[in-house]
Design a protein around this nucleic acid. Structure first.
Lengths: 197, 197
DNA sequence: TAAAAGTCTTAAACTAGTTCATTTTTTTTC
DNA sequence: GAAAAAAAATGAACTAGTTTAAGACTTTTA
C-alpha cells in the first residue's frame, strides 16, 4: 500500500524492532492522530494530564520543567524520528510537570492512552516493540543521569555536540545552556573557549 | 508448590505486572542461577562482558564507574527486591564500564543472556513484564537525569534521604557522596548543616 | 585486643560556575 | 526595511563545591 511520508517514517522506526503485516500496519496507523504545532506554540503545559505519546515526523521541540525561580531545565530536544511526551503523566494520568514547546514548525503523530492500551491487545507484538524501545531509552538515560554529576559543564557540552551534531545547529545557545544545566553566560564562555582551541 | 524464600521474593516482584501459572513459575525459576557475593567482593568489573542481569534477594551492592582520575561515580545502590546489572553490556555483549561490588554479604538470582532470550520465546508474557519494568525504570531515570543538573548538592542529598531512607542507613557517607556527585568533605559539611537545622 | 586501615570532621586556599549589569549582534515582527 | 525583541558576548563581584592537609573516630583484621 501507499503510505504518506509521515507514516512511512513511523513504520520504518517501528520496523527496527518488529515486523508488521500490511493489515497490522493499517490497523496501527488507524490508531494515530495527526498533530501540527506552530513555532513557539505549546504541545502541552505543566498541570495538564498528558493525552498522547508523540512521534515527531517534522520539526523540533523542547521538553522542559520550570523550577521555583522560574528557570527552565530542558530534559530533551526532540526532532524527526524521535519519540517524546511525558511518559510518567501518560501512564499515571496525574498532572505533568513538563512543558513541550515547538522551536520550529512541527508535525507529529500521537497515540492516545486508550489506543496505546488497545494496541497491545490487538497487536501483541507491540509489547516487544515497546520493551526494546524502553530498554534502549533506559540505557541512554542511565548513562546520562551520571553525566550531570560526573562531568564538568565543558565536558557535557562537548559530549552533546559529538552525540547530537544535527541538533546543536538547530537550537539556541540559551536552550543548550538550559539542557547542559548552566547559565547562558557561562555557555557563551565555554563556546568561546572551545572555538579558540 | 513450596518455593524458597528467595524465589518467593522474585515471583512476588514479577507478579506486580503479570500473572504466571504454576508451570510457568517453575519454568522461570529453572532458568535462574543462584549467586552469592561476600562483602567487598566484586559481582563484576569493568572490561568484562556482562553475563547476567541480577535480582537481589539479600544484601546491598553498589554499581559504579571510575573516571580518568580513578574517582568512583556510583550510579545505583541495589538492595533486596531490586534489579541490577549493566543492561548496556548485557544487551550489546560489549565490555562493561561498570564495577558492581557488595557492600554487605549478598545473595542474588541471575538470568543469563541466553535464558533471557529463551524466556521471551517460552513465556511471551515476559515481554509485557519487561516492557513495564523498563518503562517504570525509564520514568525514574528521566527524572533523575535532571536532578544532577538542576538541583544543588544539598537538595540532591535531601531528595535521596526522602526517597531511599532504608538505603541511607546501610551505606557510608563516602559512598553517598560518590552517588550525589560531590567530595566526601563536602558531604560531611552538608550533613552537619542539615542536622543543625 | 592491639595495630592497621578506613571513615569522618574541620579549616584554609582555591576554582568552576553564578549573578548582575552593559553593550553588541541577530532575529522577529509589523 | 525600520523598530522592537531576543540572543549572545564581556567583565567584575560573588558563591557552591574542590583540594589539600591534619587530627579524631570507627571498623576490620591478625
Amino acid at each position: 500500500m501507499n503510505y504518506k511520508e509521515s507514516h512511512k517514517l513511523l513504520l520504518s522506526n517501528v520496523s527496527r524492532f518488529i515486523n508488521l503485516t500490511e493489515l497490522e500496519k493499517q490497523k496501527y496507523i488507524s490508531l494515530l492522530t495527526e498533530i501540527k504545532v506552530k513555532k513557539k506554540d505549546f504541545l502541552m503545559q505543566a498541570g495538564e494530564i498528558t493525552k498522547y505519546e508523540y512521534f515527531i515526523t517534522k520539526g523540533c521541540l523542547k521538553v522542559y520543567t520550570l523550577d521555583e525561580e522560574g528557570a527552565p531545565h530542558i530534559s530533551m530536544f526532540a526532532i524527526e524520528d524521535y519519540w517524546t511526551g511525558d511518559l510518567s503523566s501518560f501512564m499515571t494520568k496525574e498532572p505533568s510537570r513538563y512543558y513541550i514547546k515547538a522551536t520550529e514548525h512541527s508535525e507529529l503523530l500521537g497515540i492516545s492512552r486508550e489506543n496505546y492500551d488497545l494496541l497491545f491487545r490487538e497487536i501483541p507484538k507491540f509489547e516487544q516493540f515497546y520493551r526494546i524501545l524502553y530498554q534502549k531509552s533506559l540505557i541512554s538515560y542511565i548513562r546520562r543521569s551520571n553525566y550531570g554529576i560526573s562531568l564538568t559543564a565543558e565536558e557535557r557540552y562537548l559530549e552533546f555536540k559529538k552525540k547530537y551534531p544535527q541538533i546543536v545547529s538547530r537550537i539556541t545557545q540559551k536552550d543548550l545552556a538550559a539542557y547542559i544545566g548552566i547559565t547562558p553566560e557561562f555557555m557563551s564562555k565555554i563556546i568561546t573557549k572551545v572555538n579558540r582551541m
